[in-house]
C-alpha cells in the first residue's frame, strides 16, 4: 500500500477545514470526524495537527471562533470568514493547477 507523503497533504489541511466550515460552523472533533468520513478513512488528521491549523487560520483572519454551551458542554465552534472563503477558492484553483502539472508526469503503465 502506498504511504501518504505528509508534505503534500500538509499544504491542504487548511483547505479541508475550510471546505467543512463553508457549509456551517463546526467544532474540533466534528471536523476531525468529517475529514475521516469524507476521505473514506483514507486520511485521518491528528488533534494536534488540527489545532495548529485552527490557530493558524484564526490568526490569518480566515476563521473566527465562538463558544457554545447549548449542548450542555462547552464547545469552541469555528466559523469561516469572507476572507476564509476567498482563501478557500484560491486554494482550490491552486490545487487544480498543481494537479494538472503533476498529472503530466504520471503514467499509468509505470506504477505497477
Amino acid at each position: 500500500m502506498a504511504e501518504l507523503s505528509s508534505d503534500v497533504i500538509r499544504g491542504y489541511t487548511d483547505t479541508m477545514i475550510l471546505y467543512i466550515l463553508y457549509e456551517k460552523p463546526s467544532y474540533g472533533y466534528e471536523i476531525q470526524k468529517m475529514i475521516r468520513m469524507i476521505t473514506n478513512e483514507k486520511f485521518i488528521i491528528k488533534e494536534t495537527t488540527l489545532y495548529s491549523a485552527f490557530s493558524r487560520l484564526e490568526k490569518a483572519g480566515q476563521i473566527t471562533s465562538f463558544t457554545d454551551m447549548s449542548s450542555g458542554k462547552k464547545r469552541t465552534y469555528y466559523q469561516i470568514s469572507e476572507n476564509g472563503k476567498e482563501y478557500y477558492r484560491a486554494k482550490c484553483e491552486e490545487w487544480i493547477l498543481t494537479k494538472e502539472i503533476v498529472e503530466c508526469f504520471i503514467r499509468g503503465d509505470r506504477n505497477g
Binding site: Y27, G28, Y29, E30, Q32, K33, E47, T48, L50, Y51, F54, S55, K73, K74, R75, T76
Partner: peptide
Amino acid sequence: RKAKEQLLEMSEDKYQD
C-alpha cells in the same frame, strides 16, 4: 492554555464517541 483546552475538548468528544 488555549491549545490545552482545545485539545482536551476534542479528546473528550472522541472519548465519548
